[in-house]
Write a protein that binds this DNA or RNA. Structure first.
Lengths: 328, 328
DNA sequence: TTGAAAGCGTTACCAC
DNA sequence: GTGGTAACGCTTTCAA
């Protein structure tokens, strides 16, 4: 800028303003400056701007996994919505681990993001301290935590499981097994399991069996392996309540390989309204979680925050609905 | 840093060195400083570092889609490998459009990335000009373009299709149809189609039919819909060669809903060695593309570039293998 | 092994 | 409408 200023015989300050389209600079001056900058091959330094203004133009996002259609859809909605506001996403994947999340948040905060979007409501104490000290807008999504860090856009996983269990009871099922990841890492999965157990108790069903499909993330192959491990004993259940649609598909495939019929011998439910649920034979009864809507609403919350058009933390329940399929 | 320095009674300079693991600082001093920084919730300012050192610490990556197990795996390998070198990924999704790619590349380059990783070898002329002017290391991956921009890590999609067609011919199939996205956006898909057509001609098969599953990206539902649209006429073919495993699964499901048997009535092949190929009944014959390996090799190339341990553009063929399943 | 000084390129703030 | 000054948080360089 100093060189450009010298060339046109003005101050660097005026060059700075001209290049940012500050309306106070004279039109002719601006034109002259722009032309000179172009000729001299001057390249504006975004890094210096970010440094000086303390505005990075970044929004940091953590997802448990990128390879998950639900989270990918939320990510896309976020990316599109924030891109329109000239904000760029800085993505980190926690791989369902709060330790990884902590490390990631530290790394992301170092880039001075203007907001932080976290998936889920469970974080290490260090993470909570870090983000509170950073004093930036935070949105927790995909859950409705009881003591949120700041804003929340999500739904109740436990409530969703009530829809599932109510539906199974209505269709005459009583001996349920829940198929999900091992206790520990995946907190959304754990909430779904607890929700299922609680709903079953409400209906006076026998205790729900827990089928452990291994450490998170669990997918098709883990559902398949879990049922193959059990073998024909699986016939003691009349419904498999799965933590996600991919797991449900794995379970269904295993049952069909054993010659068992879904839903005649055993019913199956999934979660997440993944594409696969509509392709299988029969189609899988599932919960539509509106992943894209979550992303859009996070964008809306952040827009309000940046415009100071919001007082107090937002808490948005996007809800979810039962999508019955032939599997129940 | 000044605050941390004051707290431990040292100079900011020593804090700076301690936090960067400069070996000249005393071990006890470093430990004390790290602990104090931790306690005080200090967050290192990467923007200031990038400003001062004139190195952004970013590597920019474009992917056609995040919600694709193959690309997600490559992304994870990249993220892990480059994270170890303290480089952060700046991700953009092109949605299989060269126009979107151009816009994205412009946006990404403004952040001064230290390298640019592009998926595929097809780009608009403007994109080519942009990245060449930026004069940074470039890696094109997932393809083996004939006139690469710089480094290349990929495999030949056409060669992979030859494996598929050879296998189908060996197992007695002759009336092939290719199921993929409409001509236009998805260049990798187009290469697969051309590869299939060429291989079929080589074997003297009848002309391969083209079944259009709609604009890219195509997935399970598009395969399903494409076959349902054709209806019973699909029985004129004895093999469906699909652009990807999800599409293949959609096709298989549609056939089974019509009461046709795979592979007795029609064989099906996929592409990509997606998880779903191993779960379906029967399992889908597919091509293993080693998505993770691509990511790892891109990391290796970039490491060499940053170390100046490379002369001339690298061109790495990671190859791919046929994985036979029950569907053929 | 530690510290002091200077400056990276930009812009907020104030003055004219 | 334009300009001067200072500062953002860090690291390079040199000195002790």
């Amino acid at each position: 800028m100093r060189d450009v200023a010298r060339f046109v015989g003005m101050s660097p300050m005026t060059v700075s303003r001209a290049l940012r389209d500050d309306p106070t600079v004279n039109d002719d001056t601006r034109a002259k400056i722009r032309k000179a900058a172009q000729q001299m091959g001057y390249v504006y330094d975004t890094t210096a701007q970010a440094f000086r203004t303390q505005k990075s133009g970044f929004v940091a996002v953590t997802l448990p996994s990128v390879n998950n259609a639900n989270f990918a859809e939320t990510f896309r909605a976020l990316s599109n919505g924030l891109g329109a506001a000239d904000l760029q996403l800085l993505l980190g994947s926690t791989n369902y681990s709060v330790e990884k999340e902590e490390q990631l948040v530290r790394q992301l905060l170092a880039r001075n993001p203007e907001a932080l979007v976290l998936t889920g409501g469970y974080h290490s104490q260090a993470t909570r301290d870090l983000v509170k000290a950073a004093a930036l807008p935070i949105v927790e999504m995909w859950d409705l935590p009881e003591d949120p860090l700041d804003h929340v856009v999500g739904f109740s996983n436990a409530a969703a499981m009530t829809l599932i269990v109510d539906h199974l009871v209505e269709t005459g099922r009583r001996k349920l097994a829940f198929v999900g990841a091992s206790l520990g890492a995946d907190m959304r999965g754990a909430e779904r399991r607890e929700g299922a157990l609680k709903a079953a108790r409400k209906h006076g069903l026998p205790e729900v069996a827990i089928i452990d499909a291994g450490p998170a993330p669990v997918s098709m192959r883990h559902g398949l392996a879990a049922i193959e491990n059990i073998g024909p004993d699986v016939a003691q259940f009349d419904a498999l309540v799965c933590v996600s649609d991919p797991v449900a598909f794995g379970c269904m495939s295993a049952l069909q390989r054993m010659g068992l019929s879904v839903p005649d011998d055993i019913a199956i439910t999934g979660f997440g309204h993944f594409e696969v649920a509509k392709i299988t034979n029969p189609q899988i009864t599932t919960i539509n979680v509106q992943a894209e809507d979550i992303g859009r609403k996070v964008v809306a919350v952040l827009a309000d925050v940046f415009d100071n058009a919001i007082q107090g933390p937002a808490r948005i329940d996007v809800g979810c609905t039962l999508v019955p399929g032939g599997s129940t």
